[in-house]
């Protein structure tokens, strides 16, 4: 489904990704771990199409299509979703209106009928209940005055509504207490399916106790230096990242 070959990315002239290779097949869950500054967020942003990143080499194929030439909205239409590390607030934009606009934009782009008000309301209420997201938050402005946990739940709610083919969760566990983490993990787990792939970008192993990955990759200096199964995450938890960095340098 997703194939990243030799990806090189610069931000403001600084090389961040340095020949990254990654293949994600349908139905797989991949965790990408790594120390701060290793390029984890850059990878997420480049996949979602954020501006300000210069791809100097390599390619990204999504269902055999060149992902990098698509606009962020086109990527969303094709089924790419990024749950942000820092979801922004949208003052004056009602959360419900926003999500409805989003889902219908995607449906239109795919030639599907838009949801009418009733269908939409039923769906969002059901999903919000699963994520234990207070319905009041649906009526507020997007992320405005939400707590850290509420923002993350709102991200996963959007993901549940949009049913992406490829979901990238950028540090979704950061700033969550254990109860919130469990609810969010449940939400993500319920979306696992044979057609859907998930990339979990995370600094800590903690999230992986709740969402069990098929593969774990370690990102150092803009490259994946080691891949393994979930056992690798446990080793990292015990020994930290330094031993890998040292082995990689050697």
């Amino acid at each position: 489904m997703l194939r990243i070959n030799n990806l090189h990315v610069k931000i403001e002239g600084k090389q961040i990704l340095n020949g990254l290779d990654l293949t994600v097949n349908a139905g797989e869950v991949h965790a990408i771990m790594g120390p701060n500054g290793s390029g984890k967020s850059t990878l997420s942003h480049v996949l979602a199409g954020r501006e300000g990143y210069e791809v100097t080499d390599g390619q990204v194929l999504f269902n055999a299509e060149n992902l990098l030439q698509l606009s962020p909205e086109q990527r969303a239409h094709k089924g790419v979703f990024l749950a942000m590390q820092y979801p922004v607030e949208l003052p004056g934009v009602n959360n419900m209106t926003f999500i409805r606009e989003s889902i219908n934009a995607i449906r239109r782009a795919r030639g599907q009928d838009e949801f009418n008000t009733l269908e939409f309301l039923q769906l969002i209420r059901e999903k919000a209940a699963q994520l234990q997201l207070d319905e009041k938050l649906l009526k507020r402005n997007v992320n405005a005055g939400f707590s850290g946990g509420e923002k993350k739940r709102n991200e996963v709610l959007q993901m549940a509504m949009l049913e992406p083919q490829l979901a990238i969760l950028d540090e979704t566990d950061s700033g969550l207490d254990i109860d919130a983490l469990r609810v969010i993990a449940q939400g993500v787990n319920s979306l696992r399916s044979a057609e859907r792939s998930i990339i979990l970008v995370t600094h800590y192993q903690r999230l992986l106790e709740y969402i069990q990955p098929d593969f774990v990759h370690v990102l150092v200096n803009g490259r994946i230096v080691r891949s393994g199964d979930k056992q690798l995450a446990l080793t990292l938890e015990q020994k930290g990242y330094n031993w890998i960095i040292e082995e990689d340098a050697a």
Binding site: A48, G49, R50, E51, S71, P72, E73, R75, A76, H77, F81, L82, M84, P87, V88, L90, P91, G92, V93, T97, F98, I99, E101, S102, I103, A105, I106, A109, N141, Q158, L162
Partner: peptide
């Protein structure tokens, strides 16, 4: 940042701009 957030949810840039203005 706000525009990117909305576009990453499938909302076309011109609609996102409009929604933000109306929100304002």
């Amino acid at each position: 940042e706000q525009l990117f957030y909305m576009r990453s949810r499938g909302i076309a840039e011109h609609s996102a701009r409009k929604m933000l203005c109306q929100g304002f």
